[in-house]
Design a protein around this nucleic acid. Sequence first.
DNA 1: TAATATTTATTTGTATACAAATTATTTGTG
DNA 2: CACAAATAATTTGTATACAAATAAATATTA
Lengths: 165, 165
Amino acid sequence: MQQVANTQTMTDIFNDLRRIFQALNEQSKQAEKMTGLTGPQLWAIQTIARETSIQVSALAGKMFLHPATVVGILNRLEGRGLIVRNRTKRDRRVVEIELTEAGKAFVVSSPEVPQGKLASGLLSLSATEMDEVHRSLQCLVSILDAQDIKPAPIKAVLPKNNQRS
Amino acid sequence: MQQVANTQTMTDIFNDLRRIFQALNEQSKQAEKMTGLTGPQLWAIQTIARETSIQVSALAGKMFLHPATVVGILNRLEGRGLIVRNRTKRDRRVVEIELTEAGKAFVVSSPEVPQGKLASGLLSLSATEMDEVHRSLQCLVSILDAQDIKPAPIKAVLPKNNQRS
DNA sequence: TAATATTTATTTGTATACAAATTATTTGTG
DNA sequence: CACAAATAATTTGTATACAAATAAATATTA
């Protein structure tokens, strides 16, 4: 009984997370319509803005993203003239990223970027409710940060991909 | 003061959500290593398995995904011979999706798919803790489901994309 | 010093994910 | 019946996101 109840709640939790994920994705699209930049792009220039200068791997770290992902985002921001890349003389492997004047102006003109529905919804909660949400998410984060469990590989029989006609 | 505290908690919440999404994404990769299918692909065949037969738009609905996204996932599953598509005679616009024998065997051979770290972590929580998590996520979902707020467009000045060299 | 290993960023390839446009079909209206 | 509107799936184009391979530079070790 207990087991069944827990399993059901767990399924609900998975679905909740999916819904939240979809919704945040939508917000990114909405942000794009309003500002011309996607959520991750805005997040990136705001993170850069707080540092005056930062290297790619450090930026990836602050954004919890893979460097390869950040490179793509930087390409688009550079294409729009909002950032510049400079290889340092000290160590020619590292690339320092800086905002251009246009980039700085952009950050100022969309201050903190209204994160949309979620932000305003959260701010309307009482401090108690907000803390409960925070605590619950922290709980999930700590579960996910926990040591790898490495369940035994199941590896069902699976035909190779034949391509579609 | 209150405002500052709330804003800080809100930032924390955003970061928590990002961490959770990254971690779930990783789990999808891990699931792929174990079963040969990605998280969304597993999710899809399991959803199909519960219905014996389902059309594309209905599947998209159940998965909270855009039909275009589901088409891509179905192409890959079809390429592996796990599903088949059939246009119905009744209405030749609709496509019915079914599992092949291989697909059914696959679903059975990885029953419910161990969702990994998050699942086992959640199951180790007390019922009370788990309910708190559930309630909090529901709170976020209902915020995000709420009527569109449509904040005034900010539309900062933004140069066109010049392409990268 | 020469060979090896490591580090930093980028490229390549694959898989989501969505909007907008398209195709084929069906339904509704004049 | 014919033409318009609506519907279902797909295609096209763009943007994440990551792993694995690569390139270039630096550090380490023999």
